[in-house]
Design a protein around this nucleic acid. Sequence first.
DNA 1: TGTGTTACTGGAAACGTTGCCAATACGCTG
DNA 2: CAGCGTATTGGCAACGTTTCCAGTAACACA
Lengths: 356, 356
Amino acid sequence: MANPDEAGTNKAAEKPTPVKEVTMKEVAAHAGVALSSVSRVLNDHSDVSESMRKQVLDAIEAVGYEPNLLASSLRRGSTKTVGFIANDISNPLFAEIAMGAERRLNEAGYSMVLTNSEGNPERDEALIRLLRWRRIDGLILSVADEEREGTTAELAKLSEPVVLIDRQVRGADEASAVLSDHANGMRAAIDHLLDLGHRRVSLISGRPGLRPVRERVNGFKAAFRARGLDLPEDLLKFDSFSATFGQQATHELLAADDPPTAIVAGGNLLLIGVLRALQAAGRTVGTDISLVSCDDVPLTELHSPPITVIDRDAEQMGEAAAELLLKLLAGGDGPLVTEIPTSLIRRASTQPGPAG
Amino acid sequence: MANPDEAGTNKAAEKPTPVKEVTMKEVAAHAGVALSSVSRVLNDHSDVSESMRKQVLDAIEAVGYEPNLLASSLRRGSTKTVGFIANDISNPLFAEIAMGAERRLNEAGYSMVLTNSEGNPERDEALIRLLRWRRIDGLILSVADEEREGTTAELAKLSEPVVLIDRQVRGADEASAVLSDHANGMRAAIDHLLDLGHRRVSLISGRPGLRPVRERVNGFKAAFRARGLDLPEDLLKFDSFSATFGQQATHELLAADDPPTAIVAGGNLLLIGVLRALQAAGRTVGTDISLVSCDDVPLTELHSPPITVIDRDAEQMGEAAAELLLKLLAGGDGPLVTEIPTSLIRRASTQPGPAG
DNA sequence: TGTGTTACTGGAAACGTTGCCAATACGCTG
DNA sequence: CAGCGTATTGGCAACGTTTCCAGTAACACA
């Protein structure tokens, strides 16, 4: 109406999008060959003559054919796709794991669809179900809640191979997994702090149901026990991996009668909260209170003073997960497990404590 | 051979996985109804009797039916899925954008598949093609290279709606996009620095072909021009958004004859490099040199001194992108554009300069 | 000339859905 | 009782592939 174009142009605009998809049939017709021959060329089967190949390839070019992966996957019974469910993509750590996995999978001719549960167990379940319905060939994930019935039920319905990241579900070695050695990393960190003379050491971390938390606690206890020291039970705070919990827990710790001289933030988001609380309370990291965090993110290196961390190679974890999955996809059997080492990077945030 | 198991066990191992999929056909058979009736129940059409519904639902439960989304998408001609191609998932900023988009799309009944081009234009193209072949209903992306022929060609072949994030391709308003107002943000930042008395102000950013860089430069120039000041051309460094470039550029700037008194890091990864270089050169942020960065990540807030930033709401960008795409998917026409504001957050990293 | 082999090609049946169209049964009106 | 509308259901043809099974031609060999 506003456009006083000629009729011809208008007519074209009338058809919204009844654009028929260009299929192999059109290719076959244009090349004057059978449908099956086009398919053979596309999947480069043996037994296709050079002339046929050229003829078909030309026709594909001419008609502008684009394969329909839906149809092909349906027919073949395989999507050449694996799912990845991350807890929190905005956490650079998980993002790196995902990148490592994707890279390895692509090399092997698989593509990866990345989704985000936002740490929500219900979303976890919904995503597993969705991916199952999508007929993915395999799944890499880090379940939000290891104990939850629903999640294990959804996983059980999946007949394709699964690799867990830093998680173990009921019955130790039922599932394949990539596990980082949090226990030894934490053990080393606590040893370091105890060596420096700290005794009032606090550990702040996520829900104790999760493997990383369990293992870190194990390492923590092991270090104290090895020296015959009592655990500072009142300084162990577990709730969630969020920055807000880190802040709140630190705030409470500082306000207590016998506050810690050292804090271990068991998670890189927690660290943010811990730092905020310390800053708010006017405590200087290193001199007033020692600090250790988990996973080496830019913040830990560039903070002043730089922060001691328990590090691990996130990208390697992703690659390892992909590697295991590929083995399983190739028909490998039994649960496979890869352990990723952790290492302590000492920086200026840990200084001698009262007894040191 | 190496396994002297009994025959029975062997036989079981011979069948790899001939597990026939449970389809609607089995449901229909078990319920004693027609295939089409099962379909009607599943898609809750009108005109199905209550008894039929119950009968079918029970049968589904009984046989353990799981929908095959491949088949259904193929038949329907729509996947209810949109693609998202991120430049770099490990950058928390992009991750947040992706989260915002996913949340909004899920609300609307779409699911999102997230992929990662790692800033590589070739991978960009390959991903667009792959998603096209997967028959996604729409695409949100932030192309790695706006000028590249191949990319625009791949996009052109896509008949589904596309929303760009902070990018514009040839011919200004051809494509829908969510754009952040980098120019005004930078203008405000530079005004702030000039007010403080700085004249030797450096800007470090990515390839000048990219919109965020172009716009930031525009804002930068506008601020200088408005005061009749000459541009410090020698202090403008553009190459890539990486930390390594940030470090290298800063290193060079500091070593020059007439070094800057203030640096603007045009990207949150660049900032990491800038900080490393400053630290290596023994310069203190704020007192020795003023510093502004783009996008408010944990590092900027928790650095000491805290770093002045040009901020924007990443999640909102994602939501806005999803919103536009949904409009287009619903049949909306014409290119739609949403502009996201930026704001300057002043912190202690910007202090009075030589002339101030 | 007949037979067998090789190298290729075509036809048609799947894969698991959905949606159109026709068929059935039922209840009601005239 | 005929006629008709309504509500519900079944049958069947797609959607775009892949793959099995025959079929054809060419050729060599006896």
